[in-house]
Write a protein that binds this DNA or RNA. Structure first.
Length: 573
RNA sequence: CCUCCCGUAGUUCAAUGGAUAGAACGAGGGCCUUCUAAGCCCUAAAUGUAGGUUCGAUUCCUACCGGGAGGACCA
């Protein structure tokens, strides 16, 4: 039994003996560490309910608890309007450090989803369009949520859904046909080919807005792609699709994510259409102006088109296909979909419609949203030309880091420096995205958002490399880690380090990686203070063994925490 | 017009209904002959407005003000 449940049990027993029965006991960490390590407000809450003086009730409870105090709890005190504060003991802290060392990579894990299969769908870029900074957000959130689920013992299936059919594809194809003379040759670089497709898309979508004639042509192309009716067009289509996908793979590699399953709109479209047709018979959908729509108003939502009057499935129909297909193929116990929060209302409508046909699928589906990324000038849009490319962003970040490492990185050779720079750059990007609560928008200003100092990914990595390096030194000096820290000065570091599993649990429950970020920042800060105030690798100090043990447990927690964020750490920096 | 989200230091973000609202950047001042200064220490600086619920509200409710997203053939 861990310390938290032990304290809760003790409190509820004490309450029970006074005839006060409670379902849950609120136990929190006081924001001010001088108030102890755990605190409860039961005396205030139940004192009021039972018509008793809170302070008096608190005193009675404390008397009861003191009778069964064990070695993990130093003392129990009453403070303020009736808080009961628990102060953990020296032996608890040193015991925890040993336990963390034994657990290693498993420290922080739990078995809340043991044996369950969880599918997480994220990133979702569209072939023929640029993978932009927004997809990086989806990727960072999705990857971190995936790892959180793995920390709960689940088997995670990473899925990526890519829109390889639809109007945006038709626009790009139209542009490619128009610009056929400058079509890159086979031997051209991938960048040249990608850039060509990008220009073609911009050309197609601007003309689509301006020109009635073009609009018809593009609609024709759209239909032809769905029906695969024009072999020559399909050759061009396959060429562009393939190049986009190879380009995406390169970026996924940089992001250190790999997917187990790729879904494409070309495969969900037909299935989605059938679901809608079936639903039309059952009265879930209805005809309106030649289109098949779902009337969301009956459920406090809004109406959306699922099949256009041209007979083509929209995104909503494809999503019906996708979400049922997931269960046919992998049959997950939980299906998590990560998208930008601008799709929140849309998703409600789609899921409502789906729930009327496949209630089981919807019951197991969770929608996690991330904020949209805006530049200081406003929302990104390809029309305004202020879209930040995902690949470009990563490259620029790496260049910025390289500039910093040149100033004084501690690398053995240039190859290591280059490799480390990529790892540090990714940390800066991931951190900037994951530091805020999910769903909140991010105003992205390159220089300010991608900080290498203060609260940042590199700050976390730096604290870890310091720990790693001092552990190396201490080991060389023959210092051995041991628990005999009984008389050693208490630090905030040990009072934070054991909380990691609780933080993980909360982040899992809320699908909110930023709790990990917030925690790791204060943990790193505590370690840096500890590092500044104490000499760890000191063979003449009788407590160096304990300091080493504490450093090792910090190293483990930081490593595991960074892993959840999708951040790797360099050996040196 | 309707629905949803958001208003916290100059700026970017935190705070399961709890105790003195935490950080970082920026500003000012200090700390490297001792384990990595991408670090540490000190100072100044914030809950949009008005009510309500509560022993206690940044958090919950109502109204208003301000910003964003969505709202029939895009994704």
């Amino acid at each position: 039994m861990d310390i938290k449940t032990k304290i809760i049990k003790t409190i509820s027993t004490a309450l029970d003996e006074r005839g006060i029965s409670v379902s849950t006991v609120d136990l929190e960490h006081p924001s001010d560490m001088t108030h102890g390590d755990y605190a409860t407000n039961v005396a205030m809450v139940y004192g009021k309910k039972e018509g008793r003086e809170p302070l008096k009730l608190a005193k009675e409870i404390v008397d009861d608890i003191e009778k069964i105090l064990d070695r993990d709890i130093e003392k129990v005190t009453i403070a303020g309007p009736g808080f009961i504060n628990f102060h953990l003991s020296r032996s608890f802290f040193s015991g925890v450090s040993s336990m963390i060392k034994r657990s290693g990579r498993d420290f922080g894990k739990n078995d809340k989803l043991k044996g369950k299969r969880v599918m997480v769908e994220y990133t979702d870029p569209n072939p023929f369009k640029e993978l932009h900074a927004g997809h990086l957000m989806s990727n960072s959130v999705g990857e971190s949520v995936s790892r959180l689920m793995e920390f709960a013992g689940a088997q995670v299936i990473r899925a990526n859904y890519q829109g390889d059919v639809g109007p945006h594809v038709a626009k790009a194809l139209w542009g490619m046909i128009k610009m056929k003379s400058s079509l890159p040759k086979e031997e051209a670089t991938l960048e040249e080919k990608i850039s060509f497709i990008g220009r073609a898309y911009v050309e197609g979508s601007t003309e689509y807005e301006k020109n009635e004639e073009t609009r018809k042509e593009i609609d024709e192309i759209n239909k032809a792609v769905y029906e695969k009716s024009d072999p020559e067009l399909m050759d061009l289509y396959s060429w562009g699709r393939e190049i986009s996908l190879v380009h995406f793979e390169n970026i996924y590699k940089k992001l250190d994510t790999s997917f187990d399953h790729y879904f494409f709109e070309s495969e969900t479209a037909q299935k989605g259409k059938e679901i809608v047709k079936n639903g039309l018979k059952k009265g879930v959908f209805e005809m309106s102006d030649g289109a098949v729509v779902f009337k969301g108003e009956e459920y406090g939502l809004h109406t959306r088109v699922f099949i256009t009057s041209l007979g083509l499935p929209t995104y909503e129909a494809k999503d019906l296909g996708l979400n049922t297909l997931k269960f046919e193929i992998e049959d997950p116990d939980l299906s998590i979909v990560v998208t930008a929060n601008e799709q929140k209302e849309y998703f409600k409508v789609m899921l409502k419609a789906l729930s009327l046909l496949y209630p089981d699928v919807v019951r197991k589906t969770v929608h996690v949203t991330h904020g949209i990324l805006t530049t200081p000038e406003g929302k990104m849009s390809s029309r305004l030309g202020n879209v930040i490319g995902g690949g470009t962003l990563l490259d620029d970040a790496e260049e910025m880091v390289l500039k910093r490492t040149k100033k004084g990185g501690k690398f053995e050779n240039e190859e290591e420096e280059k490799k480390a720079s990529a790892v540090i750059a990714l940390a800066a990007v991931r951190f900037a995205i994951l530091k805020q609560a999910p769903g909140k928008n991010v105003v992205f200003d390159f220089d300010r958002s991608l900080s290498l100092e203060g609260d940042s990914g590199p700050y976390l990595q730096y604290s870890l490399t310091r720990a790693t390096s001092v552990i190396r030194l201490a080991t060389d000096l023959g210092i051995e880690a041991d628990e005999s820290g009984e008389f050693f000065l208490e630090t905030e570091l040990e009072r934070l380090i054991y909380r990691f599993p609780e933080v993980v649990e909360r982040a899992q429950k809320e699908y909110a990686p930023h709790h990990i970020v917030t925690y790791l920042i204060s943990l790193a800060s505590c370690f840096n203070v500890f590092y500044a105030e104490h000499r760890i690798a000191d063979p003449d100090d009788r407590y160096s063994g304990y300091k080493l043990l504490l450093t090792e447990s910090f190293q483990t927690v930081m490593k595991n925490g960074l892993y959840i964020l999708g951040i790797d750490a360099p050996e040196r920096m």
